[in-house]
Amino acid sequence: MKAGIVSYGAYIPRYRIAPKTIGAVWGNDGEAMGRNLNIRAKSVPGPDEDVITISVEAARACMAKVSIEPTDIGAIYVGSESHPYAVKPTATIVAEAIGATPVLTAADFEFACKAGTAAIQTTMGLTISKMMKYGMAVGADTSQGAPGDALEYSASAGGAALLVGTDHVAAEINHTVSYTTDTPDFWRREGQRYPSHGGRFTGEPAYFKHVVSCAQLLFKRAGSQPQDYDYAVFHQPNGKFPVRAAKQLGFKDAQVDTGLCVRDIGNTYSGAIMVGLSAILDEAEPGDRIFAVGYGSGAGSDGFDITVTDAISKLRRDATPTVKRMIETHEFIDYATYAKFRGKILLREA
């Protein structure tokens, strides 16, 4: 028996800031920075948005596409590195807001940018084993780069939710593999406001080693080659890494293009590969095959070999805005507004 994606939903906040705007504040050539990172803009959450509201929006968009009782969901896991609470789950609020309570299990996951894909694998196991009918895996973040840090050009906000199960499967997960080592390329210590990273160490020994190794494992497990896939999507901390990894693995630009949302919205961390996958599912046809490899610092990669089924045509894919539409619906803000929205201005006690 195979598990798969029963439904999906994504959410991207509407505010954007351009690399040029950020660079202007810190005395950098922001435009060049953006070109180098292959990022035109990054999404910014409104002052009333956080990982919880983004997760709820995504989860509701996911449930709006199907006629499944929320109470049939046996587990909700929300992967993020920017949960609003250090202690107190995001997942319970998501469960309450989609009407899935009280008979279910819920928890928050953390594995840098791959907490969401870890949640997918967990729900696969729980549904294949018949412990429950459906599980929901959410990946969402409102990550921050320290002001002036290179990360500030990319760290953005967004998320996606996948409903995983073994019936009404719209996209079957044929295989999943993971590749995990202890590699401290990026971290945030307890109580620290902004994450730290190893600079160029985040590249070869971290992102590329894990993504490429995981991808090769997945090819081997599936007995497949790049040309067998209609789409490929990778974790996208910037617009450069996934393009290079794809090329190295033998994928063509056309396979990667649809899921490469980072160019318009920046790095949504735990949301990144799941938003990319949602963009693909927004337009995929029955029979399409998708190659997906996520990455989380620290470090590990989860890979998925997916085949879209006939059931995709039964999903109400127009019930909520597509990823493309959410990318197009935006409002640019200046750095002062961005700093205000992101809590970078010191306020008096409310």
Binding site: D48, I52, T53, V56, A97, A350
Partner: peptide, 20 residues
Amino acid sequence: ATFRKLGQDGEAGVIHYGYK
């Protein structure tokens, strides 16, 4: 209707959510 943060009991307090 959509789902948003309505307010919070200070930086250390409970966060309130609801409709906007």
